[in-house]
């Protein structure tokens, strides 16, 4: 009897609805509070972790039962081509200043992060996982797989980076006297990926478009360059 229950708890029949319920909970919490600090993934992952610990499911078993969601990450990366296509016109209008900032920013974000990590004495595992910190999670996970970084650490770092950028980025730039929505949007897209893009959309449509464009191009650039550099 208890074997049957354990089998059920370790099967997709239990794990997939658990994921869905946790996602909806995280979304609700985020909408109720309206702060980027509580990105839906924060509430959702905490709820799943609590359930796994209470009913005693090991993380690798949970991962195996969540296979369907992992399988959809690939198509989700492909889907990023749509916002990229829709915002491609912007780069033609703003031209080379945008292109240069994108390339420099895509290289700068991981370099600065790795520099700080080394300065504070972090090990190899952390440094590898930091490499993809500023790109949108599905791309970061795909890159992590290529460069053999721990994907859970990567996912945590990416989400936290996005939250830091989205919460602290706009007030920081305002304090620096920058009130150009194009600059704010691009900066958020490069450094805070989807979380920053969501914040940028709240500021203005122009800001959001620049962020979405920067997120897509920066993700593609990082995916192209990072595995080459780390080989």
């Amino acid at each position: 009897m208890s074997d049957a229950i354990a089998g059920f708890l370790h099967s997709p029949l239990f794990v997939l609805p658990l994921n869905l319920a946790a996602f909806l909970f995280g979304l609700k919490l985020y909408r109720a509070t309206g702060t980027a600090l509580l990105h839906p993934i924060v509430g959702a992952s905490a709820l799943v972790a609590v359930v796994l610990l209470t009913v005693d499911i090991h993380y690798p078993d949970y991962q195996r039962a969540s296979g369907l969601l992992y399988a959809l990450l690939g198509p989700a990366v492909v889907a990023l081509a749509v916002p990229l296509k829709q915002n491609l016109g912007i780069i033609r209008r703003a031209g080379w200043p945008l292109a240069i900032t994108l390339v420099v920013g895509a290289a700068l974000a991981p370099l600065v992060a790795v520099g700080f990590a080394m300065l504070f004495g972090a090990g190899h595992t952390v440094i590898l996982a930091l490499a993809g910190k500023s790109v949108t999670t599905p791309i970061a996970l795909a890159v992590a797989e290529k460069i053999h970084a721990v994907e859970s650490l990567t996912a945590g770092i990416v989400v936290f980076t996005g939250v830091v950028g989205a919460v602290l980025g706009p007030p920081l730039l305002k304090r620096m006297g920058i009130d150009d929505d194009r600059i704010l949007g691009l900066t958020l897209g490069i450094n805070a990926h989807a979380v920053g893009t969501a914040r940028a959309l709240e500021i203005s449509a122009l800001c959001g478009a620049f962020a979405a464009l920067a997120m897509g191009l920066c993700g593609a650039l990082t995916a192209l360059l990072l595995p080459l550099l780390l080989r």
């Binding site: 946790a22 959702a44 969601l69 992992y70 790795v114 300065l119 004495g121 910190k133 859970s152 996912a155």
Partner: peptide, 29 residues
């Protein structure tokens, strides 16, 4: 967020990181 939820949950089950790792992580992010 639902699709990368399983990977994100693993963050709570990281074991082999030391204090220097965590400090570096916070500084970098």
């Amino acid at each position: 967020a639902l699709l990368f939820l399983p990977a994100a949950v693993g963050f709570y089950f990281l074991r082999d990181l030391n204090a220097g790792d965590w400090l570096g992580l916070l500084a970098a992010t």
